[in-house]
Design a protein around this nucleic acid. Structure first.
Length: 419
RNA sequence: GUGAGCGUAGCUCAGCUGGCAGAGCGCUGGACUGUGGCUCCAGUGGUCGAGGGUUCGAAUCCCUUCGCUCACCCCA
C-alpha cells in the first residue's frame, strides 16, 4: 500500500470545512482592508530564496526542497511566501501602480523538517503583505488586520509578541555587544548556547534551558544599540496599537528565522500548541525588494500557519463550522424517489442545502442515520403525502413533526436558518 | 542532524512467563408493515507493518528493515 510522503497530510471532511472557513475569513477580512489576492508559483529559482531568506538561515541551509529540472536548472519548492510575492511584485512592475499595495496569499509551503506536533513538510500559510509604505501606520495596520482575522475566527485570548530588530547596520553591533556580555557567564550556558555564542549569539536569547534563561534575563536588549530612527518607528507602532486596544507583549528576546526582517517583528504563539509553537510571524522588510535587484521599496507583512491555526481554533467555532446544516430528504417508495430527485434540484436552486437518501434505506434506518449524522431536520414523503402536495418535516431535536406544502419548503427552511 | 517511544480490525486499544487473534466504537441489517436517539441481537471487518531467525508451535523471544509519533534543534 502506497502511503503519503512523510510530513504531508490528507485533509478530510469534516476538517476540510475548517480550512474553508478559515480561508473564507481571510478573504473577507483582508479584502475589506483593500488587499487583493496574489498567487505565485509553488516553485521558484533556488537563488530567490537564498538571496531573500538568507544563506545562513536554517530554512535555506537545510530545509529546502531543491531539485534540478530536466535542463539542470536549480529549482526549489517555496519554503515561505514573501520571497515569491516580492519577486512577482518586481517582475510585473507592480511598483508602477499606486502604492502601497496590499497583497495576500493562501497556499502550501514546503520545508524538509523532522515531523513533530504542528510541524509539517507541506503546510499551508495565509499571508498579508503591505508593500510600498514605510510608516509605522502601515505596521500597525498590518497587525490590526491580523488581529481582526483572528477575531473573525472567534479567538478571544491571544497576544502579539513584539520586538525591534533595529536596522541592518545595527545587527552586527548588537551581536558583538551580546557576545561580550554572555562571555562573562559562558560556563553557565548549555553546550548548544556555547556554540551559538560564536555562530549567532541572538539565538541564545531564544534558548529554553532554565540556566541559560537566567543568564540572558538581564542581557542588554536590542534597543540599546538600535538606531534612534528604528526605535522611534517601533515605539510609534506600539503606541498606535495600544491606542486601538490591542494587547502587546514586549519581548526583547524575540528573534525571527528569516534574515530580511528589520525594525518591527512580531509573533503570535498558540497556548494550545505550546509556548514555542508559533502560529503567526511577521515583520518589516525594507531592504528585501532592493536586495532582489528592485527599487528601494519598503514592506511589512506576516504569515499565519494555517494548519497550526486550525489545530488551535476555539472549540465552539470549530463545532459550529463542522455541524451538518442541511435538509435530509427521505423518499418512501419508487414514485417518491423520483419526486425526491426533483425536490433536491428545486431546493439547491433556491440555495437550500440538501441530502437525498439514495441508498434505499427504510424509514427507520434513515432516521437512525440522520441522528448519527447530526441532521436537525428531515423531510419525509411517501405516496400519500405526494397525492396531497405536502411533505412531512420532522424536527429531530424537538421530536415534532408537521405537514408542510411542497411549495413552502424552502421558505420554511430559510425561516429556520435566518431568523 | 541528535535522543526516546510506538506499530494487532476503518478508529481506540487488550492479548500474562510462547499454545485456536479479541473487546469497545464504527459500518450494514434486524427486534409491529411508514418514525430516530436508549437497549438487545446478528452481520461486516486483520498478511498481528515487512523480512529473516529460534521453536513441535511466534502477535508474543532475537536480528534486520520500513513506517509512525514525541522531544531537542528550528520554524508557520
Amino acid at each position: 500500500m502506497i502511503q503519503k510522503p512523510r510530513g504531508t497530510r490528507d485533509i478530510l471532511p469534516p476538517e476540510s470545512r475548517l480550512f474553508q472557513a478559515v480561508e473564507a475569513a481571510a478573504h473577507r477580512v483582508f479584502q475589506a482592508l483593500g488587499a487583493e489576492e496574489i498567487r505565485t508559483p509553488l516553485f521558484e529559482h533556488t537563488e530567490l530564496f537564498v538571496r531573500s531568506v538568507g544563506e545562513t538561515t536554517d530554512i535555506v541551509h537545510k530545509e529546502m526542497y531543491t531539485f534540478a529540472d530536466r535542463k539542470g536548472r536549480s529549482l526549489t519548492l517555496r519554503p515561505e511566501g514573501t520571497a515569491g510575492v516580492a519577486r512577482a511584485f518586481l517582475e510585473n512592475r507592480l511598483d508602477q501602480r499606486p502604492l502601497p499595495q496590499r497583497l495576500y496569499y493562501i497556499g502550501p509551503m514546503f520545508r524538509y523538517e523532522r515531523m513533530q506536533r504542528g510541524r509539517y513538510r507541506e503546510f499551508r500559510q495565509i499571508g498579508l503583505e503591505i508593500i510600498g509604505a514605510s510608516t509605522p501606520l502601515a505596521d500597525a495596520e498590518c497587525i490590526m488586520a491580523l488581529w481582526e482575522f483572528f477575531a473573525a475566527l472567534e479567538f478571544d485570548n491571544f497576544t502579539v509578541h513584539m520586538n525591534n530588530l533595529g536596522d541592518p547596520e545595527d545587527r552586527p553591533k548588537y551581536a558583538q555587544l551580546l557576545r561580550s556580555y554572555l562571555m562573562g557567564s559562558k560556563d553557565q550556558l548549555c553546550s548548544d548556547c556555547q556554540r551559538r555564542l560564536q555562530e549567532n549569539p541572538l539565538r541564545v536569547l531564544d534558548c529554553k534551558v532554565p540556566t541559560c534563561k537566567e543568564v540572558t534575563a538581564a542581557a542588554p536588549g536590542m534597543d540599546t544599540v538600535a538606531s534612534q530612527a528604528s526605535r522611534a518607528h517601533v515605539e510609534e507602532v506600539v503606541s498606535l496599537l495600544t491606542s486601538l486596544g490591542i494587547p502587546l507583549k514586549w519581548n526583547p528576546r524575540l528573534v525571527r528565522g528569516l534574515d530580511y526582517y528589520v525594525r518591527t517583528v512580531f509573533e503570535v504563539v498558540s497556548p494550545e500548541l505550546g509556548e514555542n509553537t508559533v502560529v503567526c510571524g511577521g515583520g518589516r522588510y525594507d531592504r528585501l525588494l532592493s536586495d532582489l535587484g528592485g527599487p528601494e521599496i519598503p514592506g511589512v507583512g506576516f504569515a499565519v500557519g494555517e494548519d497550526r491555526l486550525i489545530d488551535s481554533l476555539p472549540p465552539a467555532f470549530a463545532a459550529k463550522v463542522t455541524t451538518e446544516v442541511r435538509l435530509y430528504l427521505i423518499p418512501l417508495g419508487n414514485e417518491p424517489a423520483l419526486f425526491g430527485l426533483q425536490l433536491a434540484r428545486d431546493l439547491i436552486r433556491q440555495g437550500v442545502p440538501v441530502e437525498l437518501e439514495v441508498g434505499g434505506r427504510s424509514l427507520k434506518a434513515a432516521l437512525k442515520r440522520a441522528d448519527k449524522r447530526g441532521f436537525a431536520k428531515v423531510v419525509i414523503f411517501g405516496e400519500s403525502e405526494l397525492a396531497r402536495g405536502v411533505v412531512l418535516v420532522k424536527d429531530l431535536r424537538r421530536g415534532t413533526q408537521q405537514e408542510v406544502p411542497v411549495a413552502e419548503l424552502a421558505k420554511d427552511w430559510q425561516r429556520e436558518v435566518e431568523p
